[in-house]
Design a protein around this nucleic acid. Structure first.
Lengths: 342, 342
DNA sequence: CTGTTAGCGCATTCAC
DNA sequence: GTGAATGCGCTAACAG
């Protein structure tokens, strides 16, 4: 059994109030007593019981964070940033992996509530806003990341996916592509709509038709990306370029291209909606929409801490702008084929 | 303020003992009262306060997990597996990212102890075993992953890195390489020694000299991998093959090769100590030592749950065998150069 | 300056 | 079958 504050008090021959005072610096204690307390702490290898402290303080100093998929490097990086920012503020992170499942999201929100976390950062999975709305409306500090809810208002930090996608498609067009496929995300999701919207905008800007056949939904997994790519490639007039929804989907798309012995990037060029340093090392070159991961993480954390301090303030939405990361092609211009098609 | 069990009791016109009984199924309650309680719970949107429950139960149903780097896909995957396995057993995961820093490890172990987690899974960072040893010796359920401690005994699930490395080097030799560089991990670490040992074993088996110049330490980051590779390539007789310590280091090595316009894999072949599905999609082909991630995660979880149930049982060590994942080269045998060197 | 006491929300003895 | 009372370990208000 771990020793308690009472054990320390007994051993030091003082009251528990004195021990507590020393430990928290919340009360003046004479140097002599203070030393005796610290000695007892050391001898007993005492550590404060945060559970008891949390109960009495009505605050756990813990923040819950929910992400769709921790093995997606994009999410992993956001978590890493947030975790560091939170540490500075004296909070501990309780992480939940939603595995892209709405049920998991409901389950975790329930757990976080029961655990009495002081705040929640969530990269929403579409399909189950109800639980979350209840939480927000009951004054629980919640900051949404990436995806906006449709049924209520809340603090939000997101990337402008319309612009990001538009820029990507425009870039592909500037490289001569005219048939451009897109894997926006799962079907019924407003988030996917933004990307489709950006895709349409770009095409319209060049007077190209926006053929819905070139939209193939994915689920952010390698398999999903592969499947979506297969659909696109099976079209009568397959696209010469594909914009994948995240890094996993890029892997899936490239795998299919390899299996079909389609030359990359000559015959089909691939772009990614998430950047990764991996793309700097391997072939083929894959340009990307570079999400401002660091800003996402730090802004979300700051927003949350601010809301914890002032629960009444009006909700704030921060929209961050992504930038293209263009990866140039090998010295020998293999891309003549695509360019000639323009 | 969230409602408490007292609010529910008042509203249902019963005692708190009855409410508790209904909520936990720990006591017979007449159907009529039971229904009244459940109705009150619903109306108040009541959720049990886990903090209070944990205090009284002396158990939080939380497991702490510490990993060196959450953005390393290998660790991210282990976390994902563990998190799923733990959920089945009714535990929640408290995650800590050590960022490869011993100080962070000490800090987190302290936090986990204070938070009264029921158990700890840790992928140790070298350099600070003291804190951990104290925990293990004070009967706290701890399972170590990946890396074995030197100063004490504990439950452990690890991969056989000696064998893994030996197999990798042997594979490279079978492909004709005679000068094989290795990036084992940070310098003073026993973990790195295993890999160096495997490297030596393989070379000795073929009667090749083991020149220490071909050992270049890394720190598991992209930058570290790039730096280590630069050192190797600056040698008078640079290696024709390099085994990197994890996926990040592979990225760093390949980046350097690209910068130096060294042909991959013709002039220098790269292997990885961690597999990744990414390697199936990109060029150049990179064979790897495939760590049994799933087994690592599930075994560690089972070991921990068993220790929680029987704190007194003798420590158990599970050593898992990695397997090679060979990636074949493009149809046109570009690798003649390397093979000819044999 | 320091000790005593109440209560955070809950589960769990006891009595009835 | 159900209710009242105790204590988990801690902090903070109140005495002295």
């Amino acid at each position: 059994m771990a020793s308690t504050i009472i054990d320390v008090a007994k051993r030091a021959g003082v009251s528990i109030a004195t021990v507590s005072g020393v430990l928290n610096g919340s009360r003046y204690v004479s140097p002599e007593l203070r030393e005796r307390v610290l000695a007892a702490v050391r001898e007993l290898d005492y550590t404060v019981n945060q559970v008891a402290r949390s109960l009495q303080a009505r605050s756990t100093r813990m923040i819950g964070m929910l992400v769709p998929d921790i093995s997606d490097p994009f999410h992993a990086n956001v978590v890493r940033i947030v975790e560091t920012a939170l540490k500075t503020a004296g909070y501990t992170l309780l992480l939940g992996n939603l595995r892209d499942r709405p049920e998991e999201q409901a389950r975790y929100l329930h757990i976080l509530r029961a655990q009495q976390v002081d705040g929640i950062l969530i990269y929403m999975v579409p399909g189950c806003e109800e639980e979350l709305r209840k939480l927000v409306e009951s004054w629980k500090p919640v900051v949404l990341m990436g995806r906006a809810p449709t049924t209520f208002q809340a603090d939000l930090v997101a990337t402008d996916h319309v612009t990001g996608t538009r820029l990507a498609i425009e870039h592909l067009m500037s490289r001569g592509h005219r048939r451009i496929g897109i894997i926006p995300g799962p079907e019924p999701q407003p988030f996917s709509r933004s990307r489709i919207h950006g895709w349409r905008q770009a095409l319209a800007g060049s007077g190209l038709p926006a053929d819905d056949h070139y939209i193939s939904y994915g689920d952010y997994t390698i398999e999903g990306g592969a499947l979506a790519a297969s659909h696109l490639l099976d079209l009568r007039e397959p696209p010469t370029a594909i914009l994948a929804g995240n890094f996993h989907e890029v892997v899936g798309v490239l795998r299919v291209l390899r299996q079909r012995r389609i030359k990359r990037p000559d015959q089909v060029e691939v772009m990614s909606s998430h950047d990764s340093e991996v793309l700097d090392a391997f072939d083929p070159p894959v340009s990307s929409v570079d999400q401002p991961v660091r800003e996402l993480g730090t802004n979300a954390t700051e927003l949350l801490l601010r809301r914890i301090r002032q629960p009444g303030r009006p909700p704030e939405q921060i929209l961050l702008q992504p930038r293209l990361k263009i990866r140039s092609f090998p010295a020998s211009p293999l891309n003549i084929g695509a360019a000639a098609e323009a």
